[in-house]
């Protein structure tokens, strides 16, 4: 797979504070990567470096082979900032039209309608930003980021202001984008969402990548739980492979087994362990 985003030895210093330290990160086409970490870990700095809003202190970032921030790189990405605002006097449709003009999109009215429908704002296309709730503005932000069908989507806390239904809609949207071959770098504190949709997770702490991999590979087995007539027994340290043997021994010992569950740590456990919480 070709790399859509490549960061090599990326460092960013704000005065005496090192916000990013030699970060290496790649995103393949159609890959959905979750960026996790505590506040101040460097996630937003990484996002901003990828879209050219920040100049790296060291290292390099490229989008589809072009240096981050160049016209070629910017023409291939969509970005939703963590803290953003659209002019309150524009309607939802006018915001999308503005960004179509800026990105030279030829999608016209059909693209505007499709994007607003995609984020559930089809009926609100004539509503001014000033009259929108925070959640509606966030959905508009996602639609704006998708103008011109980018190859790479950088989403910084896209679901922070959304209700559970809105979060589910964003998850479904992310999965559909992946199917269309769009790569997504998702910065989110919503670990359950990240665990559900992301192919890979990168955990940043203190500006450094401390863990990286598929969610399933990051979690560790915690044991096997067996429900018998005499109660629930937990076999800590046992793995999935140990389950048949455990059940056989219990049955041989006269126990009646009603259920077996393989226990594993969650992404939240991995996260908390990594950040030292």
């Amino acid at each position: 797979m070709s790399e859509v985003l490549e960061c090599h030895g990326l460092s960013k210093r704000y005065g005496a504070k090192l916000a990013l330290e030699s970060v290496d990160l790649t995103l393949a086409r159609g890959e959905l990567v979750g960026l996790l970490g505590p506040n101040g870990a460097g996630k937003t700095t990484l996002m901003k470096s990828a879209c050219g809003l920040l100049r790296p202190s060291a290292g390099s970032v490229s989008v589809c082979g072009a240096p981050a921030g160049s016209g070629e790189a910017l023409s291939r990405l969509g970005y939703l900032a963590e803290l953003f605002r659209f002019p309150g006097w524009l309607t939802a449709e006018e915001v999308i039209e503005l960004h179509q003009g800026l990105s030279r999109s030829r999608g016209g009215a059909a693209e505007r309608a499709a994007l607003l429908d995609l984020v559930g704002l089809g009926e609100a296309r004539g509503v001014k930003v000033d009259a929108m709730s925070k959640g509606m503005q966030q959905r508009l932000g996602i639609a704006q980021a998708l103008v011109g069908t980018p190859h790479l989507l950088l989403l910084d806390e896209p679901a922070s202001a959304l209700d559970p239904a809105g979060r589910r809609a964003v998850r479904e949207l992310l999965l559909s984008l992946r199917q269309r071959g769009i790569s997504v770098l998702l910065n989110s504190h919503l670990l359950s969402d990240v665990e559900l949709v992301c192919d890979r997770v990168v955990l940043l702490v203190g500006g450094r990548v401390v863990r990286s991999g598929r969610p399933a590979d990051l979690v560790r087995p915690r044991g096997v739980e067996v429900e018998t007539a005499s109660g629930v027994h937990t076999y800590e340290g046992s793995t999935r492979e140990d389950a048949p043997r455990i059940v056989s021994e219990l049955v041989a010992g006269g126990e009646q087994v009603y259920g077996v569950r393989v226990l594993a740590s969650t992404l939240e456990d991995v996260y908390l362990e990594s950040v030292g919480a």
Partner: peptide
């Protein structure tokens, strides 16, 4: 600082 600039600057016009 008001968050209005970033969405415009990340567009390819430079």
């Amino acid at each position: 600082e008001r968050g209005l600039l970033a969405p415009l600057v990340v567009r390819p016009l430079g």
